[in-house]
């Protein structure tokens, strides 16, 4: 396989190695931030044994082993795929969080520090007070024990 073809394969699919009941793959930190890798790993520590390595600068190696000792190659392959999916999910979460950070801060600041919120509650209370509660055409306020009251 030519170098270009190898590179294309590596960038279009997750390349992993199976060895001794474990699956190993390397991730580029430019594509997958470390927080995303940690986020995915955190969700997988219950299900499998996870170990992270640093095979080269800017790369994080992920080694997974199923907790079930009878796990076969298909199970490990599925595990790697699920990890990759979760990784993508974490990356999207991080990017959305980053891109919406400013607007979230703005809304929080507005909610906490703006006076309008308090005044709108006051206005609502005033509106309730102003309602014509004295009119009781259906006699709802009359106690049932004392119909003549």
């Amino acid at each position: 396989m030519s170098e270009a073809a190898t590179l294309e394969r590596q960038t279009t699919e997750l390349v992993f190695e199976l060895q001794q009941g474990r699956v190993f793959f390397a991730l580029d930190e430019d594509l997958y931030p470390r927080d995303a890798i940690f986020g995915a790993a955190y969700l997988f520590v219950d299900r499998c044994w996870v170990f992270l390595t640093r095979p080269a600068d800017g790369q994080v190696g992920v080694r997974l082993r199923a907790k079930d000792p009878s796990a076969d190659e298909a199970t490990l392959t599925a595990l790697a795929g699920e990890f990759a999916n979760e990784l993508l999910n974490q990356v999207v979460r991080i990017r959305v969080a980053e891109s919406t950070a400013q607007i979230r801060e703005f809304y929080m600041a507005k909610a906490f520090f703006a006076d309008q919120a308090q005044s709108s509650i006051d206005a609502l209370l005033a509106e309730l007070d102003a309602e014509e509660l004295a009119e009781d055409d259906l006699a709802i306020e009359v106690p049932w024990e004392d119909p003549d009251a």
Partner: peptide
């Protein structure tokens, strides 16, 4: 067997992620 290594690594990773 291998489990002590795997479990040790899991423990260290979990502690690291929680602390970070």
């Amino acid at each position: 067997g291998d489990m002590i290594e795997d479990a040790f690594c899991n423990h260290a990773l979990h502690e690291t992620i929680v602390a970070r």
